[in-house]
């Protein structure tokens, strides 16, 4: 079972919801603490929504220097899947794991709504379970989600297919090109303003479109370390022409190496060794 860590910073709000979403979708939730430098061997990390350090100075600016973030930055560089939701997205931008910045929304109010989005890239660890251009509906709630980047950065993001989510129907915050979420060059770090962890429970969610985020990372993690014998190697003569389930998952985003290469790792290796395998480029 994939172990997914959720960091709690002082002022995090949605850490418990993220932990619960992991449990509901079949993962093993692990609480991570901002002041600890241990990631406890998790397979992936979620930076949750909220107001870390009271949004003092700038959203995410102080959280970015917490001890746990030093480890997150190091591990993300080796391919560890990291998802930043809302304040987590702001932290990722401040930490330079993602380009650009999130400023106050042009409407100048805190805005809460069910938001229509288009999944523009399925080539990431967190979106491979979606169909390309799939339209999904995820709740958003923020006052500072206005994504800004200079023209050159924007051209690069668009040109490299790194805009992962775009707002449909209306742009809730004035973000450039209607960007709701982006990824890094290797597709293991994704940040978005809407809150997938709130769209996993039929009791309180108008859609269950958040489930795909979690299924995506589970597929990725399981493909990295499958139970022995379940996934044929790519060169295997009896390899099915259109493999199904997690065996089919390509780990290296943007055309990187297939995850099945990582099965040589076996199971239970330290995360860093496994994580290094996912670097596609």
């Amino acid at each position: 079972m994939a172990k997914i860590g959720v960091v709690t910073f002082p002022g995090s709000l949605d850490d418990q919801d993220a932990l619960r979403a992991i449990k509901l979708t079949g993962g093993e939730p692990v609480s991570l603490w901002h002041a600890s430098d241990s990631l406890q061997g998790v397979d992936a990390v979620i930076l949750p929504g909220g107001f870390s350090y009271g949004d003092y100075l700038r959203c995410g600016a102080i959280a970015r220097f917490s001890p746990v973030m030093a480890e997150v930055i190091r591990a993300a560089g080796k391919g560890l899947p990291v998802l930043g939701i809302c304040n987590g997205f702001q932290v990722l931008c401040e930490a330079h794991l993602l380009p650009g910045a999130l400023i106050r929304s042009d409407r100048r109010t805190f805005y809460c709504k069910d938001q229509q989005l288009r999944v523009e890239s399925t080539d990431t660890v967190w979106t491979n379970a979606f169909a390309k251009d799939q339209e999904i509906n995820i709740v958003l709630k923020h006052g500072e989600g206005n994504f800004q980047a200079d023209d050159e950065t924007l051209r690069r993001l668009e040109g490299e297919g790194r805009v992962v989510f775009r707002y449909l129907v209306e742009n809730p915050n004035g973000s450039r090109n209607g960007i709701a979420g982006i990824t890094n060059e290797t597709g293991n770090v994704v940040g978005l303003m809407p809150h997938p962890e709130h769209n996993v429970d039929p009791l309180v969610s108008p859609t269950l479109d958040g489930v795909g985020f979690f299924e995506s990372v589970y597929r990725f993690v399981n493909a990295k370390t499958p139970p022995s014998g379940t996934c044929p190697t790519p060169s295997s003569p009896d390899s099915p022409s259109s493999p199904s389930s997690s065996c089919a998952l390509v780990a290296g985003p943007n055309g990187g190496a297939p995850a099945t290469n990582a099965q040589d790792d076996g199971i239970g290796k330290p995360q860093d060794d496994g994580a290094q395998k996912v670097q596609g480029e």
Partner: peptide, 13 residues
């Protein structure tokens, strides 16, 4: 200061 080309919602308000 916010860069000149960056929208400044607070200043606008």
């Amino acid at each position: 200061m916010p860069k000149p080309e960056i929208l400044d919602p607070q200043g606008k308000a």
